[in-house]
Design a protein around this nucleic acid. Structure first.
Lengths: 129, 129
DNA sequence: AAATTAATTGCAATTTTGTTGCATTAAAAT
DNA sequence: ATTTTAATGCAACAAAATTGCAATTAATTT
């Protein structure tokens, strides 16, 4: 297998994701690292960071794909997506509510890999306005 | 408001969705109604069917948008997405498990509109091979 | 410190997916 | 049969993501 390298662009992308309080889309990330690298490179960095278990890939209720840092995931465990995502229909932001864990049981014929509970609605800051 | 009409294309699309045991993507639907209508028309029909509460719009774990028939939804109630979706990572199909209802409570500052619980993994038929 | 290896990047081209405007067609009501 | 307007086809457009390949550069080796 290949040995990952640490590049300026990769660090910048990871940094933006980790600093953000909510999950970012590829365009948002590209905006924030303006000038550092190409649009295509952002796509490839995101793929790699997901493969390396450094970030989460979350799908919004509208199908938009967003990326979030891992607070409670340990790299050595790999990822467990068994927590709740809140997807705001007003500001379109999506955030992880890591405290809320989910437990579901299905028939044995289903092999469960990951759980994605996404709740859509209005987030606290949008509720104020 | 506008009065919906029943066209051959609309009926064909709805039929394919209802006959399928799992949720279909726009390309899959377009394939199955080959020759009946234009690609653009399928998009517009799907939008309309969703608006008319005839079908579900479901987002797959990979961000793909799929459409499923409504078994347990009543048109007069509108739609409630409070059940479980199983999204197979092998065949990419997604199905509704309507028996499994979900209940979650969040802080009052979050206004909940819909719940989307998607479980990814291997579906029963892919498990066989 | 220089050379080597292969992971990473930039750029251009392409593909896929979804949208819009507008003239034409056809479903349903009169 | 006529009228109304929802629905369609087509062409053009726009957005989002992918691919190939040559050039670059991080990290390792000598």
């Amino acid at each position: 297998m290949s040995t990952p390298r640490n590049t300026k662009a990769k660090q910048a992308v990871l940094n933006e994701i980790n600093l953000s309080g909510y999950a970012l889309s590829q365009p948002e990330i590209f905006d924030r690292v303006q000038g550092i690298c190409d649009r295509v490179t952002v796509y490839r960095i995101l793929d790699r960071l997901v493969r390396e278990n450094k970030i989460h890939k979350i799908v919004n209720i509208d199908g938009t794909i967003n990326y979030a840092g891992c607070n409670s995931c340990h790299e050595d465990h790999g990822h467990t997506h068994d927590h709740l995502h809140f997807s705001c229909i007003r500001c379109k932001k999506i955030e992880c509510l890591e405290e809320q864990l989910i437990q579901v049981s299905l028939p044995d014929s289903y092999q469960i890999k990951e759980l994605f509970l996404t709740i859509s609605g209005i987030c606290p800051s949008c509720s104020l306005t």
